[in-house]
Computed example of a mutant assay.
Amino acid sequence: MDKHYLRSLMKEKRLALTPQTFSLYNQKILSKVLLHPQIQKAQTIGCYVSLPQEVDTFKIIQALLPSKQICVPKVRGEDMEFYVIHSLDELQPGCFHVLEPVTSQLIQPHQIDCMLVPLLAYDHQNYRVGYGKGYYDRYFQHHFNGYKIGLAFSFQYVDRIDYDQYDQPLNEVIHEMS
């Protein structure tokens, strides 16, 4: 299936969720993330800052901040870097209207134990379709050895995603049904 079409389809499906269903799914995903062995043993966790229709990471970040070092991405040209935050107040609108850190403590890829990754679609091999800019795939190619967890809703699953040599599979995907 064409990635452009998949992106459009999955955005429409996310918009079709009722607020009640969206909230319920997010609560289930939050519980699974917090209980996940890789999250529990990680010291430094990279996490995207969610957009309105994505799996909500604000509650995940808030729940993890007291016990974990949390870093979030900031886009720099064609790449992204991760910076430690101590509070959601350390975020401001940045590239593509996504909240980005205003802090200065840069974390290198090899320092992140576990990464929570956004996606629009995923398949049985844990390949993902993102937003098409390749930021995460490029980041994972630069000495990232941590565990990669995609966060999704179960309806974002597709049988097969066409991938190329640049696409990096996730270790697993957590959704409300998993």
Rank of each mutant, 00 (worst) to 15 (best):
L6D: 03
P52L: 02
V102M: 13
F22A: 12
C95W: 09
H4R: 15
G94Q: 09
Q53E: 13
L88R: 01
M177C: 08
H142I: 05
K28G: 08
E90R: 05
I161D: 02
L9P: 00
E12L: 12
Q141Y: 00
C95K: 11
Q40H: 04
S31F: 02
I60G: 07
G150K: 09
N145E: 08
V55D: 01
H86Q: 15
L30C: 07
F22P: 05
Q156G: 01
S31K: 13
L15H: 10
H143F: 01
S31W: 00
P109N: 04
Q156D: 03
R76P: 02
M177L: 10
N126S: 14
T103V: 04
Q92K: 15
L88F: 00
D167I: 06
G150Y: 12
I61W: 00
S104K: 15
Y139W: 04
P93K: 11
I45Y: 03
D137W: 00
R138Q: 03
K11E: 07
V33S: 11
I29F: 06
S8F: 04
S23L: 12
D162C: 07
V117C: 05
K133E: 08
E78N: 13
L91C: 14
Y136I: 02
Y127H: 14
D2S: 11
I45E: 05
A63Q: 12
T103E: 02
G150W: 09
E78R: 12
V129L: 07
G134Y: 01
I39L: 06
G146W: 03
A152P: 00
D159S: 12
Y131W: 06
K28L: 15
Y131R: 10
I85A: 11
Q92M: 14
I112A: 05
Q125W: 06
E176P: 06
V33L: 11
I60A: 13
F58G: 14
I174K: 06
I39E: 05
Q53A: 14
T44H: 10
F96Y: 15
R160S: 03
T21H: 09
D159H: 12
I149P: 03
Y139Q: 09
Q38Y: 02
D137I: 02
Y136C: 04
Q53M: 08
K68W: 07
K133Y: 04
R7Q: 02
P109G: 10
V49T: 10
C114M: 06
V49R: 02
Q53S: 14
R128N: 08
E100P: 08
R7S: 05
L34N: 08
Q156C: 01
Y131Q: 11
L65A: 13
P101T: 12
H4G: 13
P52T: 05
D162Y: 09
Y5N: 06
A121Q: 05
N171C: 08
V49Y: 00
L51W: 00
N126L: 04
D113G: 12
P66Q: 09
Y127I: 10
P118Q: 08
D2K: 14
Q105S: 15
I112N: 11
M80R: 05
G77Y: 05
G150V: 07
Y83T: 10
L64Y: 04
L9M: 12
V173L: 06
H110E: 13
C114L: 04
K133G: 10
L119H: 03
Y25P: 01
Q69S: 12
M80F: 09
H4I: 11
P19D: 12
I61Q: 10
Q40F: 06
Q92V: 12
P52H: 01
I107H: 04
L65Y: 03
P118L: 11
Q141S: 15
